[in-house]
Structures are given as C-alpha cells and as structure tokens.
Design a protein around this nucleic acid. Structure first.
Lengths: 239, 239
DNA sequence: AGAGCTATGTATTCTAGCGCACATACACCG
DNA sequence: CGGTGTATGTGCGCTAGAATACATAGCTCT
C-alpha cells in the first residue's frame, strides 16, 4: 500500500512500496486532461507517461479512412504509456481522453530509470501490462462475436469501474467512435437499455441506474477482463 | 546474433548474446508440436515456455458457447508463454498448434530465473511482447472493420511470414475457427483469391502463388503489424 | 421568448455474413 | 475399382448493422 499521508487515487502509484513512491513523488505532476485531448499520437515519441486519477484515457487505432476502434481503456487502475518501458518507445495507436479529469504525469526519463532498477515497480508495471493485454484480447473477441448492445454494456461497465461516480459524461457519438460502430447503433442500443431501466441518459450524460441488471445483460468479455484485473492487481496488494 | 555453431531457427533465441544463449542451451529441449495440440489451456499453469522454430502456435479465446477467436499467432519470431515473465503465470486464452512443427521448450523456472537477471534477455522479451500487443490490437481493429476476405489475406500473410515455405497445411474449417467466422465464408473468400490467381489450394493445402498481389488486397492491418515487428525485432539485432 | 447549435430519434434501403441444408469431389483404403 | 470419410462448393432465407436522410428536442445565449 502507498503512504497514507499523501493518498494517491491512482491504484498503481498507491500500490508502490512507500520508499519508491516517495522517491517518485517529486517528479510527479498532477495535470488536467481535457475531454478529447490527445495524450499521445500514433507513432509519436512520448515525453511523459500518465497515471490517471479521475480521468479515463482511451487507446484507439485510427485507420487511414478515418474509422476508428478502441483497443483498451485506462483509468485510475493503470498508466498510459506502456510502450516506454516495454522498449518500443512508440505504438501505432493514439491515446485520447475519454473522460475529463486529472492524471499524474511523470517524465519518460524518470519512468525508465525507475523501471531499470527492477524490483517491485517493474513487476507491478508488467502485471498491469498483462491485464491490459487481456483487455485488448477480449476487445478483439467482443468485436468479432458480440452485438452492439452487448458491447455498449461492456463499455459502460468498464468505464464506470474506472470512475468514482456512476455518471459518465459522454455523447453517443463519441461512444460510437470508440466502439467503431455507427452513432445510430448506439442510439438504438442505449434506447433499449434505458427502456429496460438499466441506464438513464440525456445529452451527453449517462447514468447507470441499475448496475446489476447491466451485468446480467453484458457478454462474458466484461467479466473476463474484470477478473483478470482483480487477479493481477488486487486492491490490497502486498508486493 | 546467436552463435553460429548451433544455429537456432528461432529468431528470439538467435538474437540473444552468445553467453546467454550458451547458458540457456542446456535447458532447451527441441520438441515436436502436433497440429491441433494444446500448448496450454486457458487459466492453466504453464510448466514450460516454447520458442517455435518451424511451427506456428495460435493464441485464441474460446467462448462459453464454443465459438472462438484468434488473438495472435506466434511463430519462429517469438515465444509462447509471455504471461510467465509478465507475472500473471496464466492467461484466459488457449494456445493451439496451428501448423505442426517443432519448438524449443524451456522450463518456466529457468525462464523466470533468466528474466530476473534483467539485461538483454529481459529487454528482448519485452520488445517482443510489445510487438505481440500490436498484433492483438490490430486483430481487434480488423475484427471490427474488415471483410472476411481481407482478414483471410492478413491471416495468410502473417502465417506465411512465420514459415519457411509458402505452403500452409490448413483446412478452411480450421481457418474459419481461427478467424471466428463460418467455414462457408472462408470457402467463398478463398475461392475468390484462387480465381484471382493469388493462392492455390486443395484439401487442406494452401499455396501462396502471388504474394505481392496478396499484399495489395490485404487491409492495412497486416502492414501495421509487420512494420511493428520489424521495428521492434530487426533481423540483425544489436543488443 | 426565440434562435441556433448539438444531441438524439427514426425510417428506408442495402449488404455482409450467419445458419442451415445439401451437393460434389478428392483421397485413401480395402 | 468402388466405398467411405473428409474437404469443399453452393443455394436460400434471415438478421445485424451500414449508409443515408431527415425529424425532433434539449440546452444556451441573447
């Protein structure tokens, strides 16, 4: 567990041993991430990595024709910029702020230095990366086999898990972009979910009214990802 | 480059510094991988990791209803069992032999020991893992946006890249399973490709006749993955 | 209150791919 | 040489989702 004197709402940071966290702290800057902002571009060098606190960042690939598809989401359970310590420095995907908020920013130089020390930080980041890999794999499966409605449920739950509230600020248009489907498809699916009393929404504001019913309607992909994150990154982590 | 005295057709092994390779060599066993064999099961502990030489292993997720989807393929450019050093020990996906052949098998214990030494081996494996991540991400994109024919092209090229020949031993039924589509869909797409003179096939034997034409017909996903593997794991690697 | 923008609702047509059913055809084996 | 099994070919109806077009309905700003 991280130090209680300076509580960090980012779970990865919070899971670091106190001595490491304290060493890092002087290099961590709390920055604001605005909705739609690009945290990094496909193929671009990344001067920083980001540990979201109350924001959500979406990793997505944008095709040449402009169509897009979400690869994974990152919230306060993780960090944006794994390619830095994985050794590639860049990736072919973009990172876009899906839900405005804040993140702790750390210079790539410090991140690499700390990673190279090995030990708890390295192992924690690699376990997180494996969880992220599972999320990507399951996204591939979900894209192949499940309906827009099921995918919307998965997306809502994954997003809600990464926010302190059960309210998302997100238009159907943006959700459609993330999922790589038409806006009308999201409208239709969202309408059904609202009619069934699972969610309530209006003009870019989605409230999850009945979470357990939502969990019943979602495809198995959500549970697979959730379970893997819980397994690899338990809340009370003993490193 | 690996030692030339004992040439290893697995590129990862070949890219290791000679001293590390020699230390590993006594623990490496060349084993046969039969078509359809399960290298590891979803959620199961893995006593070994595998470095394919002339075989291809497919990572796939099997849903509760039996439907499946391929997440990524591993050939002589990589290894099967990244979750071992990533720290999770297991993953929710299966690994199935897609093309019979051989692989060097290494005990998980030795693998972990070597990884914990850090240095070149760790960095090499992490770079490979990042390339694999790109493949997974692009699979998700491809599943979302591209036609069965395009996906078949991608699959053929990715497989051919991992084999010494331009001939694949693979029924349309199995390909359909990998791609998570109907067998008839593969038949139709393969028929078109054959009519166009790109491939030739008969009863579980596919020959790539005109590779460059195939590359013109494939979606951008193939190039993204290929480029990323080349970037992260150049053939003449200087570690 | 009204204008205007943006978000959401809805209808219509079109197509890829699914599910199912069955026809062919090659390969091997007795 | 014919039989049997597996691999491939094909047709048909059906549905989800795409593309397009346009209708409504909340906010916000004056």
């Amino acid at each position: 567990m991280g130090p209680s004197s300076v509580p960090s709402p980012n779970k990865l940071l919070a899971a670091l041993p106190p001595d490491i966290y304290e060493r890092l702290q002087q290099d961590l800057d709390l920055v604001e991430l605005e909705l739609g902002a690009s945290v990094y571009e496909a193929g671009g060098k990344q001067p920083f990595v980001y540990f979201p606190t109350d924001s959500i960042v979406s990793l997505l690939y944008v095709m040449k024709d402009g169509a897009s598809a979400e690869i994974a989401v990152v919230g306060n359970e993780g960090l944006v910029g794994i390619s830095l310590f994985m050794g590639g420095e860049t990736t072919p995907s973009r990172a876009v702020v899906q839900s405005a908020g804040h993140a702790f920013r750390l210079s790539s130089k410090v991140m690499k230095r700390e990673f190279e020390y090995g030990g708890p930080l390295l192992h924690l980041l690699l376990r997180y990366t494996q969880a992220l890999i599972t999320q990507m794999a399951q996204t591939a499966v979900c894209n192949r086999h499940h309906s827009v409605e099921q995918q919307l449920c998965r997306w809502l739950l994954l997003s809600a898990d990464r926010l302190p509230t059960n309210e998302l600020t997100m238009t159907q248009e943006l959700i459609a972009n993330m999922l790589g489907v038409r806006r009308e498809g999201v409208t239709e699916a969202a309408g059904k979910l609202q009619d069934a009393g699972l969610i309530h929404y209006s003009r870019g504001r989605i409230i999850i009214v009945n979470r357990s019913k939502l969990e019943k309607r979602v495809c198995e992909c959500y549970a697979v990802v959730k379970k893997e994150f819980d397994r690899l990154l338990p809340n009370e982590m003993a490193i």
